[in-house]
Design a protein around this nucleic acid. Structure first.
Lengths: 372, 372
DNA sequence: CTGAAAGCGCTTACAG
DNA sequence: CTGAAAGCGCTTACAG
């Protein structure tokens, strides 16, 4: 029996009260309700299996309880982990997430944004395909929006992110701690500012170790496996592959590992590798990948806090990444984490989603294994 | 100026017509509108940047234009590729997707389903955490729903999937074509029916080649990297690793590759590997992975066709997988695809999302490279 | 503490 | 071809 779904009127009839009282009970206000009346309503709701029509609620009170999540491409592991964290956080507070996958298209992204505005979402979580964000559009639309894991070049929207320079600095420091003196960097395309920010961290760490960055290899390539693969092949062919390499993201690292393997080079013995923005996949690369991970669960919590408490001035929430040790950097034995630990690192247990903060492993800060 | 968003009344005023006419123009019906009037409305809409409030539309006509997508865990590459395909297909027809990530929890899954029903979605695309689906709940709720890439044990809902037995048969046949006579299978947990269905394909292929399945290795493990890793370690330790191995999914294959590497074994020279349900990630494993891929784009199209044309009897749409050749099976040179081709295989170009069908590479069906 | 009533922004018969 | 009006299922002042 595909019976019509019960409405508030049905509940009122069943409970023998008015429709207003049903709302007062369900919303816990704005008027008080006698305990006895409340019980009648609660029972009627249970009996009929009533759930308020969200479209009607949205129309009546202006809030939809729905949020938009716009991402460049959900098939990227880094990005699907973001979607996962946002989903988990939203679920806890009865929020609904509409996901928009831009499929790496800047104009598609704008269409998605427009559609979300028409949908009257309560907020938008936005990770752009490129650095050119549609901030003005969002600003004018008047929707609360926060930029996730990226900077807002226009400086008009809230951002939740890490300090990429600082994190690459920590990552490079770890490579130097291993004793490598020939540490190169593969960062993003020359025309992107975050390529520069990431390279800056590497430069600072080299500087601290009295190594001239000018004497080291710096590469620029798209943040993709394919581009990093090509770049690596080229470096090997020209005998320009450094002893250790810091990459701009996990996808680049995966491309580097594949290329080195195809060239018959061994990681970490011939070339040590590490990356910014690792994911659970880092646990099962060959060898497992040392990387900086972002604390997505906590960041997701902050996102909704910002979205639900609009402010006049754009706010910038900054988080610290965590260095998660695999074998690709040269760490081994007890220092490097085993594959399963690495893969599940930071993953909240769905059983208790409230206390989901992962424990950061200590950064091996003792003496260097290779001297120096 | 966070100006109030324009409503239909604003458009009517601006165009100098009634509100009804505005709707007639926007919806292309149900009443005809004179060309001149139409133009005035269209201009007013453009000038004000008007977009209908979807909550109001949903309340008035009963349809939300919103669909729910419930998935076990979006961080799994196979699953994020599904989400991607569904997103692309929905975008083309102005549909909005609410994503629910069950985070591998069966009860969380039910809560998500309930929330989608309250949301009055026009349809639900459902991939369960386990084989026990909440089909009865969906049936009673009266929401159109289709089970994606899985069977419906209760047989009451539409399904869109591949024939797993048939696909593993093709995959195993490819391994036999290579000349391997010692071909094992790692499938899912013993208590899952799809573990059996997958193993059946392997059994049939061996039978066709006059090899007794009883004489070969069959393993059961969770469809995860970690479980497959452990299983492989155990097999190697007990000197029970077969010359060639067919795995139940890509995650298992990744775990197998990692374990073999950690044991100092080489793929494909020591052990050849292939998997059902590969993804773009197969292009960058070490070595690249030979796998069967599912035609998600076409399957997504069928999903919406079913959702939008409800029927009394449950329908079963079945698709063919595609064998995509990497190096892990032993194919090399021109037979094995290069990493980038493998990774981008079947990926629709966002520029022309309408004609997005990938071209299936021919299955190398000639004579075997190793004789036999 | 309870209820009759206006209003949210649309769709769509129905009358002109 | 055009428009006044009822109704979708809620929220929330306002009056009792």
């Amino acid at each position: 029996m595909p019976a019509r779904r019960p409405t508030r009127a049905d509940v009122a009839r069943e409970a023998g009260t008015s429709e207003a009282v049903v709302s007062y009970v369900l919303n816990d206000g704005p008027r008080p309700v006698a305990a006895a009346t409340r019980k009648k309503v609660v029972d009627a709701v249970a009996k009929l299996g009533y759930r308020p029509n969200r479209a009607a609620q949205a129309l009546a009170n202006g809030r939809t309880g729905t949020y938009g999540l716009v991402l460049p491409n959900i098939t990227n592991a880094f990005i699907s982990e973001i979607a996962h964290a946002i989903e988990l956080e939203a679920f806890g507070s009865e929020k609904v997430i509409i996901v928009g996958d831009s499929a790496d298209s800047h104009e598609r992204e704008l269409k998605l944004l427009k559609s979300l505005v028409a949908e009257h979402v309560d907020g938008i979580i936005y990770m752009g395909v490129t650095e050119r964000l549609h901030s003005d559009f969002l600003r004018e639309a008047g929707v609360p929006a926060v930029i996730f894991t990226r900077a807002d070049s226009d400086g008009v929207l809230d951002t939740v992110r890490i300090d990429e320079t600082r994190e690459v600095f920590a990552l490079t420091r770890h490579m130097l701690w291993h004793g490598y003196r020939d540490v190169g960097m593969l960062t993003g395309p020359v025309n992107m500012s975050n390529s520069t920010w990431r390279a800056d961290g590497w430069i600072q760490a080299l500087g601290e170790a009295n190594i001239d960055p000018e004497s080291q290899v710096v590469g620029h390539a798209a943040y993709s496996r394919g581009a990093a693969y090509d770049w690596t092949l080229e470096q090997v062919k020209r005998h320009r592959m450094p002893r250790a390499l810091v990459t701009g993201n996990e996808r680049q690292a995966v491309g580097v590992l594949a290329a080195l393997n195809d060239c018959g080079l061994h990681v970490p013995d011939d070339v040590a590798v590490c990356a910014l923005n690792g994911t659970a996949d880092s646990g099962y690369t060959i060898p497992s990948l040392t990387s900086i991970r972002q604390p997505f669960s906590e960041m997701a919590r902050e996102v909704f806090r910002l979205l639900d408490t609009p402010a006049d001035e754009p706010r910038k929430a900054e988080f610290r990444g965590d260095l998660v040790i695999g074998k690709s950097c040269g760490c081994a034995g007890t220092l490097g984490m085993d594959r399963k630990t690495l893969a599940s690192w930071g993953t909240p247990d769905p059983a208790n989603l409230d206390s989901s903060a992962g424990v950061a492993p200590a950064e091996g800060a003792g003496t260097s294994p290779t001297g120096a």
